[in-house]
Design a protein around this nucleic acid. Sequence first.
DNA 1: GTCGTTGAAATTGCGCGCAATTCCAGAGGA
DNA 2: TCCTCTGGAATTGCGCGCAATTTCAACGAC
Lengths: 235, 235
Amino acid sequence: MPRRPAGNTDQPPAQGDIYEQIVDALVDQRILPGTRLNELALCEVFKVSRREMEKVLLRLSFNGLVTLIPNRGAFVASSDANEARAILSARKTVEAGIVEAVALRASGADFKRLEQNIAREDECRHAGRIREAIKHSGEFHILLAEITGNPILCDLMKQLVARTSLVVSLYENPNGLSCWHGDHATLLKHLRAHKARPAMNLMQRHLDHLEESLVFTPQADTSTDLRTIFRRGER
Amino acid sequence: MPRRPAGNTDQPPAQGDIYEQIVDALVDQRILPGTRLNELALCEVFKVSRREMEKVLLRLSFNGLVTLIPNRGAFVASSDANEARAILSARKTVEAGIVEAVALRASGADFKRLEQNIAREDECRHAGRIREAIKHSGEFHILLAEITGNPILCDLMKQLVARTSLVVSLYENPNGLSCWHGDHATLLKHLRAHKARPAMNLMQRHLDHLEESLVFTPQADTSTDLRTIFRRGER
DNA sequence: GTCGTTGAAATTGCGCGCAATTCCAGAGGA
DNA sequence: TCCTCTGGAATTGCGCGCAATTTCAACGAC
């Protein structure tokens, strides 16, 4: 039986891989909220059957990243203001706990990983590659979850970060400075000093600022060519 | 197709309803970890097509409540010790935040709901209906999440409580007192007084005690008749 | 020029049924 | 008595293809 688990040769695409590729496309905003995800087009792009793609879309919808409308298909979730606030609020609740745990139990290697992430983000930001910088900024929060060593919290944060990306795409302030990126460095300082309370407070403020920087006026949807976003089949 | 002449008017069973019925069966331990969930049997029980049941099972597996083994089918998740600890640990992280939010922002009506829940649990416990008491005990924690007004946290807690039930089924101490049920009342007292810190600490201890009451020695699986658990189709 | 109408093409929902795999009881051998 | 083997039954994985619905552009009425 020719079972190929996962090869760099992407002839037999994958199952969870497809999920992650789509999530990646969401977090660095290559797909915007409201975009219609044509099932057949996705099948074509990832070279899988409709059935497999259906499963991926189901999982995305269970996680709030995609909305399934009967007879219409899958659309990238575009949260209303209430849901957006709920996402941010959930992050405040969860990340306070994560930061506390990290402040109390993180080791030197963990700090190193955080430091490298911050360095990468700054690098991208100074090079003007804002999109990549945003991606790293999200990964910082996921890193914190990873450092707790709890895979459940880790998955949860991946989901919340992705949903946050969608919310930011929808409601970001047009003249918004890609702001507060100094926060991560300050937070790391507190974590190194095992100052749990200041770290928690800073995370709270960090997310408050993010929320305040949003302006809850929906803007026009954009429909995007899926074949352009996922470069495949050509070299 | 043979139309049901029998009593119940639940003509088209539902989609998310089935999910919730199965979750309910998990939380009050009518289905034990390791139980095989025969797809055709479930289709028969809920009167749905295999396709629909497949979706439900997929969702259960995405949420960690069921394990899908290729060519073998669906099994109620039976976590190992590590995963069990991760579930409890995630609850400590999340519920600390929830309790803090509730302590700061809950109103009189909220306290009433909590009080009623505690009363119901005590009632069941004194009447010797332990299973029901446990169910209410879990609902208390979900109630706290509901009171935050955040549907994301609410769904998350439903999932974590269900997974906790499975873990308890697997690892509960045989001679264990169905313990610490006084904690909920004490917690409510703190919440009423808006004492966030004591409430958070108590929740932490509450979950610590739960974890300590577990003995990580797996016991025998039990296969159960699905048609008995979900009473349907007769009478 | 703007707004309904309409019909064909595109798309999704899903039942059907086969192929592949696993399960299990019973036979045979050590 | 306890393994090992084996063949048929049970079960899952999934492609195929049709029916139902939606989409969209061309058309005609006002």
